[in-house]
Design a protein around this nucleic acid. Structure first.
Lengths: 207, 207
DNA sequence: GGGCACATCCCCAGGACTGGGGAGACGGGG
DNA sequence: CCCCGTCTCCCCAGTCCTGGGGATGTGCCC
């Protein structure tokens, strides 16, 4: 099975190294290399690669957001994060964003190529440390997995009304506060839930 | 690395089959076979095997509960569920209970042996279908369509993307149409669903 | 051919929303 | 006492969304 891959990575050295790695695999073709998010979001969607390998730390934004946006534009594309951080929170966010794999940069070239093949066949390649953390998240349920708990009481009230379809003005009326205050609460909610619109907030809230 | 395995499985045929499979692997020794939970909970702990392979459907109780109790008694032991159900709920419960792997009985003998080795090295063996479900649990639950009556195909596609939190421009990009067209579809959707905003449309769509 | 549904694109005006900033009041904790 | 979090309100700029209007092309059915 032929596989097209787009690489999003800012470090030039790693890019070169990965190009060599890809060249070793006859069934893997690297169709694009982007050094930042902005370029990637413009260049990658038209190419519709089978797999995207991307870093989390990018110069112009978080790879997690980038992954979410790419996944929305290309639902069929499998996204594999390739990064140094094994921060549990980053891992969860990446998976929430739609990533299908999470490799640490300590992975060998062979593992990387194997992972690309694996993800194409429906697998979920992860470095063992990462897999372990993912599984652990099931043992302490709902702790870090729902950011909703970080919301203040008022913010939650606003979100609840938002999730009922009310507009800002209507929420203001219902809570007897100013519309500006509602918008301030919304800003804070967006920040805490890592979303960019009321629709996304509602989706996250309603699970 | 030598690995001791305890098997908990009520079906006699499968037991015999697995014994043969284990005999094939020189580094894997089956130290115990239990046909039910009660026996297993008495016999297995003193043996402290490296790995437990267990069914979920057992005559005297759920394998999920059994896994939880075994894991408490043997924190070092890796538990791998081996079952026919790929019910998402069962999978989550098993993982919450402390299972480190989840294999379907459709897995081949080779996969089973490979999984035993994998779990000993910190891996998390899962059949691809299962892995996919686990990963999906990090995303949003699927939409249920009910009140979506007279929508055309295109309108439904737009609504689906809308319900994933995409902005108009992103929907346009995803469907490769103009943003004006998306807005026209949205107008029609609002009319048909009797709503006045994208948020309300999403709420109606997702029930 | 004529009518109809569908999908596509366009224009426009007003309002809503997003995302920065600041700032006052209040209460709790160090 | 001062700091910090929370809730409240405000300003502003830019973008997005809503809700009218119209237009073209395609395919289907009678």
């Amino acid at each position: 099975m032929k596989t097209t891959v787009a690489l999003i990575e800012d470090n030039a050295g790693i890019c070169e190294e990965l190009k060599l790695v890809f060249a070793e695999a006859p069934d893997v073709t690297c169709v694009s290399v982007s050094r930042n998010l902005q370029t990637a979001l413009r260049v990658v969607p038209p190419l519709a690669p089978n797999v995207v390998i991307m870093d989390i730390q990018l110069p112009d934004g978080s790879g997690v957001d980038g992954a979410a946006r790419l996944k929305r534009l290309l639902p069929e594309t499998q996204i594999v994060m390739y990064t140094i951080t094994q921060d549990a929170d980053q891992i969860y966010r990446a998976l929430e964003a739609g990533a299908s794999g999470y490799l640490l940069k300590s992975a060998s070239p062979e593992e990387l190529i194997r992972s690309i093949r694996e993800v194409r066949q429906g697998g979920v390649p992860m470095t063992p440390e990462v897999a372990r953390k993912v599984i652990q998240s099931f043992r302490r349920p709902a702790a870090s997995r729902s950011a909703v708990e970080a919301l203040t009481k008022r913010e939650e009230e606003v979100l609840e009304l938002l999730a009922q379809g009310l507009a800002s003005g209507e929420i203001a009326q219902a809570l007897r506060i100013g519309i500006e205050t509602v918008n301030t609460h919304l800003k804070h909610i967006y920040g805490k839930l890592h979303v960019r619109s009321r629709t996304e907030a509602v989706i996250k809230y309603r699970g």
